[in-house]
């Protein structure tokens, strides 16, 4: 292949989680140099190691300080409400549903990023389903009423409130010990990450209902991207589409193995933790749907504005058969 020598920096997702260690790191450090004969060199670092918190990455790609980055879109819901569109709390039931929603949304979102934020959208990624872990027994989502649930961000908090629970804000670093000591009754994290962090030793009950996912996007600064040789652009576009697919597959697998590991197995990562799985009932589904319709969607519409709502209705809404009034 006749590519020019190209070197750039890439900021990856959370450095300790499998999206980075199993997918992004091997892609940038092994696959890309191998496939391009060393012509394309990417210097990849997880944002956590760089001392970022997450919210600044979108801005830094937009201003061009960073060439390329993977970032969870919800980190920026405070300044770019549109980012939250496909990862709204309580809306989607599985990683597969998320993949469909994202496909419907992709062209509109890509255009939005290019025209409004000087960013080229190159693909998506996602974490496993984020589920609820609780210390004390519950048999239905309605039982969460009155419990202190650690929730991050306005959407999760609104969701917990509308289910009758009490949303509590605690620094991420303090969640694990707070759940252990009982500062909070319940907390939300990934189906497999909670197993790996041994949350099961303090929380004994788990609900398989995805609260949301942690949808991420692979972003590039538009000016920098336009300056790349066409052959490099073409190679990266195809390569990153492949990365997206494999990350979604990983997330789907990890959601399943995570739930299995936390309960009775089989578990490829260690001994099953023996937590009680609290299956989702029909009443639960009605409750969640009501909460989405009455709390999540109207709040999203208010943050996002009329134009954004119209885009949502035409893309994600159409694929789900839901309309925001």
């Amino acid at each position: 292949q006749d590519m020019p020598e190209t070197e750039f920096n890439v900021v990856g997702s959370i450095g300790t989680l499998s999206m980075y260690t199993d997918k992004e790191l091997p892609f940038w450090s092994e696959q890309v140099p191998a496939e391009t004969g060393g012509k394309v060199k990417a210097n990849v670092k997880p944002f956590t190691e760089l001392g970022f918190k997450g919210g600044e990455i979108f801005r830094l790609v937009s201003t061009g300080t960073l060439h390329m980055a993977t970032t969870v879109l919800a980190y920026n819901s405070g300044e770019v409400p549109m980012n939250e569109s496909a990862d709204l709390v309580g809306l989607l039931g599985s990683v597969e549903e998320l993949a469909d929603a994202v496909d419907a949304w992709r062209p509109a979102f890509a255009e939005f990023l290019e025209t409004q934020h000087n960013i080229k959208l190159l693909g998506f990624g996602t974490y496993q389903a984020q589920v609820i872990y609780c210390r004390d027994e519950f048999t239905a989502i309605a039982d969460l009423a009155g419990r202190k649930v650690r929730a991050s961000g306005a959407s999760q908090q609104a969701f917990v409130s509308s289910l009758g629970g009490s949303p509590v804000s605690i620094a991420f670093a303090e969640v694990s010990s707070s759940l252990a000591s009982g500062v909070v009754d319940c907390a939300i994290t990934g189906a497999l990450s909670g197993y790996k962090a041994k949350w099961s030793e303090s929380a004994r009950f788990i609900s398989p209902m995805p609260v949301n996912f942690g949808l991420a996007a692979q972003l590039a600064n538009l000016d920098w991207w336009n300056g790349l040789d066409a052959s490099v652009q073409e190679y990266l576009t195809t390569g990153l589409a492949g990365l997206e697919t494999s990350i979604f597959e990983l997330a789907a697998t990890e959601t399943e193995t995570g739930l299995a590991c936390n309960t009775s197995g089989p578990c490829p990562h260690g001994d099953p933790a023996g937590m009680t799985l609290v299956p989702l009932t029909e009443a639960d589904e009605t409750l969640v749907a009501e909460s989405v319709a009455s709390a999540i969607l109207p709040a999203f519409a208010e943050r996002c504005g009329a134009e954004c709502v119209a885009t949502w209705n035409e893309t994600i809404g159409a694929s789900l058969g839901v309309t925001i009034e």
Binding site: N9, G51, F52, K53, E56, L60, G64, T65, E174
Partner: peptide
């Protein structure tokens, strides 16, 4: 690449760290 572009964001992060 110029790294000072991230200085403002890093300074703000450190300044409002809850811990």
């Amino acid at each position: 690449f110029p790294m000072t572009g991230a200085a403002g964001e890093l300074a703000w992060n450190a300044s409002e760290d809850f811990i």
